Simulated assay, not measured.
Amino acid sequence: MASTDLDRPAAGVTWRQRLSKWDVKASPYLYIAPFFVVFTIFGLFPIVYTAVISLMDWDTIRNSGEFIGLANFDFVLNDRKFWVSLRNTFSIFLLSSIPQLIIATFIAAMLDHHLKARTFWRMSVLVPYVVMPVAVALIFSQLFADEYGLINHWLGLVGIDAIPWHKEVIPSHIAIASMVNFRWIGYNALILLAAMQAIPRELYEAAAIDGAGKARRFFSVTLPQIRPTAIFVIITSTIGGLQIFDEPRMFDSAGNGGADQQWLTITMYMYNTGWGELNFGRASAIAWLLFLIIVVFGLINFWLTRRLISSEKSGS
């Protein structure tokens, strides 16, 4: 009786086959390993090191400190500047992020149409992002100058009194928020545009056949389809908005957040405490409090994301 292939013993696995199998399993980890190595050195280690310093009365000259527990956190939480800076940070964040996302979505929708010289317009909206933040802050600080600023000059031409941009809280926050919007609207618009271009055109055609107008197609097709990308933009805008530093720092020549801390942000407060007062223990405590605030907002955004995705699935 002739033997079949099933009766023959299986051939042994060669070393090349083993190497190929190992390569398939291990190579993805090797590809992403450099990021985690760099993150550990320049990200995770500073976080842990800052946590240690925040519990000490740090001596910058001797580069050593005495353990004092949570005294730095207690001082910061009872300091008026911290709560003023927290108020200013959230105020500037809301005044910048909400209009920023609305305008960016509108610009992305316009760029998604069949425009002439589309590449030119798409590159143009990104130009403010590549401008140095210091240059943007210097230009806008002159536009919003109290005495000779261009904005107050225009207001004077129509009979409106000059606005004290550098003396009052809300006007200074509006001025700083305008700088942030100028830099980041185009960047977020391109991210949203990429999401819009990934939407199947058949959905728009079907909506048009059903009689939906442009506005109805935008709210019923475009916005639901770009929801995951919009959530990503909201999360990144939240993190960036809570860490705002360059614009308020350069809003005046002193860089202290105003005479009465009208636009002092948390990052400015941390910088002034660390490098101005040379108290790195308290500065580290401020950094950790800011870190915890960002984590809380990140968790809230994550919860909202899950709710939106689950509602979208249940509605489909």
Rank of each mutant, 00 (worst) to 15 (best):
A2D: 14
S3P: 00
D5R: 14
P9Q: 04
G12A: 15
G12I: 11
V13I: 15
Q17L: 07
K21E: 14
W22E: 12
K25V: 15
S27E: 02
Y29A: 05
F36T: 09
V38T: 13
V48W: 02
A51T: 07
I53Y: 01
L55K: 08
T60Q: 10
G65W: 04
G65D: 04
N72Y: 07
F73G: 04
D74Q: 14
L77H: 02
W83L: 08
S85G: 10
L86H: 04
R87N: 13
R87E: 13
I92F: 13
L95N: 12
S96R: 08
S96C: 10
I98M: 04
Q100N: 11
L101N: 06
L101I: 13
I102C: 02
T105A: 11
A108T: 09
M110G: 09
L115R: 03
W121L: 13
R122A: 12
S124K: 07
Y129A: 08
Y129F: 15
A135Y: 06
A137I: 10
A137W: 07
S141I: 09
D146P: 02
E147K: 10
G149F: 04
I151P: 00
A162E: 06
A162Y: 00
P164K: 02
P171Q: 07
P171H: 07
S172I: 03
H173L: 11
I174G: 09
A175D: 07
I176W: 03
A177L: 09
F182E: 00
F182Y: 12
A189V: 08
A189Y: 06
L190F: 10
I191H: 02
L192G: 07
L192Y: 08
L192T: 09
L193V: 10
L193M: 08
A194I: 05
A198V: 00
E202A: 11
L203G: 01
A206W: 03
I209M: 11
I209Y: 04
G211R: 10
F218I: 08
F218M: 08
S220A: 13
L223N: 06
Q225R: 11
I226R: 06
P228M: 06
P228V: 09
I231E: 03
I234Q: 01
I234M: 12
S237R: 01
L242F: 12
L242C: 09
F245V: 11
E247N: 13
G255A: 09
G255W: 06
N256K: 14
G257T: 11
D260V: 12
D260A: 14
Q262G: 00
W263C: 01
M270S: 10
Y271V: 05
Y271F: 15
G281L: 08
A285D: 04
I286F: 08
A287W: 01
L289K: 01
L290K: 01
I293S: 12
L299N: 03
W303Q: 08
W303N: 06
R307G: 10
L308A: 12
S310P: 00
S311V: 11
S311P: 00
